[in-house]
C-alpha cells in the first residue's frame, strides 16, 4: 500500500500567505521546544512545552487548509509533512525573528510577547477573511491563543516589575527582538492581490505597534517604542521572500528536515 503525496501549488498568493502564517508558527514552535527539559523551573517547563506543541499544531492545521478538505487520512499526513518538512530553505516564508536561537529566557519571553501580539492581530484579521476555510481555522486558533497571550502578558509584567536585574535583562532582550520583529509585517509575493488576509501583513503593523507601544510606555520602556516605529534591520529582512539567515539554513532547517529528506517516502 503506497500513499501518493499530494503536492498543492504553493506559488499562488493564497498559498504564500498561508505558508507565511504556518511557517511563523512551525519555526516558533520548533525553537520553543528547545526549552523542554531545560527551562528555568519545572512548572514553566510544562507551560512552555504546551506553547511549543500548540504552535506546531497550528502550523499543521494551516498546512491542512493548503491541502484542501478533499485530502484526508494518510494522504493528508504525507501532504502536511511534505510541506512542513520537505521544502528547500528558500521555500519557507516565516519572519527571520522566528528562526533566531532562544539565547536565554529573557530573550525567549521578549520574542514570545511580541510574536503572540502579532499572532493575535493576524488571527483577528483572518477571522474576517472572505475565505471561509481560513476564517474557520482562524477562529479555532484564536481560542487556543488566549492561553499564550495570558502567559506572554503575565511574563511581561512579571519581568518588568521583578526587580532591577530582571527589568534590565528584559529591557535588553526587547531591544534585540523588537526591531527584528518588524519582519513579521513584510508582505509575501502577490499579497496585495490576495484577499485572504484582510489588510495583508503590512496592515497588521499599526494595530500591533499601537498595542505594544501602550504596554511598553506603561512599563516605563518608552525608549523602546521608537524601535517599533523604525526600520527593519537588513539582516532580519527578506523572510517572507524565502531569504533566511544562517540560524535557519545552517541550524533549524537541517536539523528539522533531515530525517524526512534522507528517507523519502518512508512512513514513521
Amino acid at each position: 500500500m503506497s500513499v501518493t503525496t499530494p503536492r498543492p501549488d504553493l506559488d499562488t498568493p493564497r498559498a504564500q500567505v498561508l505558508l507565511a502564517i504556518a511557517d511563523d508558527a512551525l519555526v516558533t514552535g520548533h525553537r520553543a521546544s528547545h526549552w523542554t527539559g531545560v527551562a528555568p523551573s519545572l512548572e514553566e517547563d510544562l507551560a512552555f512545552s504546551t506553547i511549543a506543541q500548540d504552535a506546531i499544531n497550528h502550523a499543521d492545521l494551516l498546512y491542512q487548509v493548503l491541502l484542501g478538505a478533499a485530502v484526508s487520512g494518510e494522504q493528508q499526513r504525507a501532504g502536511v509533512d511534505a510541506i512542513g518538512l520537505g521544502r528547500e530553505p528558500d521555500g519557507y516564508r516565516h519572519a527571520i525573528v522566528c528562526e533566531r536561537p532562544p539565547i536565554d529566557f529573557a530573550r525567549t519571553l521578549a520574542r514570545h510577547w511580541i510574536t503572540t501580539r502579532v499572532e493575535v492581530a493576524r488571527l483577528d484579521a483572518l477571522r474576517r477573511s472572505p475565505d471561509a476555510d481560513v476564517a474557520a481555522v482562524a477562529t479555532k486558533l484564536s481560542h487556543e491563543l488566549r492561553y499564550h497571550r495570558e502567559h506572554a502578558e503575565h511574563w511581561f509584567t512579571t519581568l518588568h516589575t521583578g526587580g532591577a536585574d530582571a527589568r534590565e535583562r528584559f529591557h535588553t532582550a526587547l531591544g534585540h527582538v523588537l526591531p527584528e520583529a518588524l519582519g513579521f509585517f513584510e508582505p509575501v509575493d502577490g499579497e496585495d492581490a490576495s484577499a485572504i488576509l484582510p489588510g495583508g501583513h503590512p496592515g497588521l503593523r499599526d494595530v500591533v505597534v499601537d498595542g505594544a507601544a501602550t504596554s511598553l510606555r506603561a512599563a516605563g520602556f518608552d525608549d523602546l517604542v521608537g524601535l517599533l516605529e523604525g526600520d527593519l534591520p537588513a539582516e532580519a529582512a527578506g523572510g517572507r521572500r524565502g531569504r533566511h539567515s544562517q540560524d535557519f539554513t545552517g541550524d533549524v532547517w537541517p536539523e528539522m528536515t533531515e530525517l524526512h529528506r534522507v528517507h523519502p517516502g518512508a512512513r514513521w
Binding site: 492545521l61 481560542h143 487556543e144 488566549r146
Partner: peptide
C-alpha cells in the same frame, strides 16, 4: 473557558 481546547 481558558481550559477549553479547540484543536485536536
Amino acid at each position: 473557558t481558558l481550559l477549553e481546547r479547540h484543536t485536536d
